[in-house]
Design a protein around this nucleic acid. Structure first.
Length: 269
DNA sequence: CTGGGGAGGGGGCCC
DNA sequence: GGGGCCCCCTCCCCA
């Protein structure tokens, strides 16, 4: 998903284009970020679903604003027509103009820089230094838990992670508190844009279209993966059999399940 | 077994 | 320092 749902236009530099998705709902909860995620929706009795799917009824999706406690704040649902066109209706023509112009070369076009072992599970990357903590709360946000000589670490009490900055810790804590809640299904997310991406699973909005085949995606990352399927040369070659794959996961699965050639391990990013 | 889509998590960069 | 945005990555599932 979505790693990137927020299509920015030229005229709104640094201004999230939430306007595409905003409702007329005024006021709201205490989480400004989530307030901006309030989406218009189609009243079932007045508007046809944009992307109906079998067994997946389109229902109004109104992410609840969240409060500081990490719980949604219920409120009356606004009833506004959905002005957001769905790119699936017009392949190749994402709403809001297009995919946001890149301000810098995407990393996926740059030479690989990842260090070996970067594919380890997140929970395995950081470990140990805070192992004695009991769950039940977070470290206070008033200082690092590591020694002054060591790199600053702000360990989380609910997991082994120890972000290197207070801001990172706060961000990480959100992965536990999950303050952004979908009003449709109740699923909670750590960040507003994660919620927005999830909301698209309800609305069927797919702003990212493939320039080659016109297929639309709700998630830019998924579009990027799809673009690999059009590439003549895949990004992930097997050093054992020289076969290339569009995704690292496919290469890994290939190596684990079949290619036993010496040196057959992931060599691309 | 392989290819691909859908969905989600988390860190880094920039303003 | 914080928030917004982007990117990379993984997992799951299906054909």
């Amino acid at each position: 998903m979505p790693r990137s749902f927020l299509v920015k236009t030229h005229s709104s530099h640094r201004v999230p284009n939430y306007g595409q998705l905003e409702t007329q709902r005024g006021g709201s909860g205490s989480c400004a970020a989530c307030d901006r995620l309030l989406l218009p929706f189609q009243r079932p009795d007045t508007a046809a679903p944009a992307a109906p799917q079998d067994g997946d009824p389109i229902v109004p999706c109104l992410p609840l604003p969240c409060n500081d406690e990490g719980w949604g704040v219920p409120g009356p649902a606004p009833l506004e027509p959905n002005p957001v066109p769905h790119s699936s209706q017009v392949p190749g023509a994402p709403p809001g103009g297009s995919v946001r112009p890149l301000q810098r070369p995407p990393r996926w076009l740059l030479p690989p820089t990842r260090a070996p072992g970067a594919d380890e599970a997140p929970g395995q990357q950081l470990g140990g230094e805070d192992g004695g903590q009991a769950p039940g709360g977070f470290h206070s946000l008033d200082g690092p838990g590591a020694s002054p000589a060591a790199p600053r670490a702000f360990p989380c009490r609910l997991c082994e992670k120890a972000p290197t900055s207070l801001g990172a810790l706060k961000l990480h804590v959100r992965t536990h508190t999950l303050p952004c809640v979908c009003a449709v299904c109740g699923k909670a997310f750590s960040r507003p844009w994660l919620l927005q991406g999830h909301v698209r699973t309800h609305t069927g909005e797919k702003p990212y279209a493939c320039p080659h085949c016109g297929r639309a995606f709700a998630d830019r990352s998924n579009l990027r993966a799809h673009l690999q399927t059009h590439a003549n040369t895949k990004r992930f070659p097997c050093t054992g059999c020289a076969k290339t794959f569009s995704r690292g996961s496919l290469l890994a699965r290939h190596v684990e399940s079949g290619c036993l050639a010496p040196g057959s391990r992931r060599s691309a990013p």
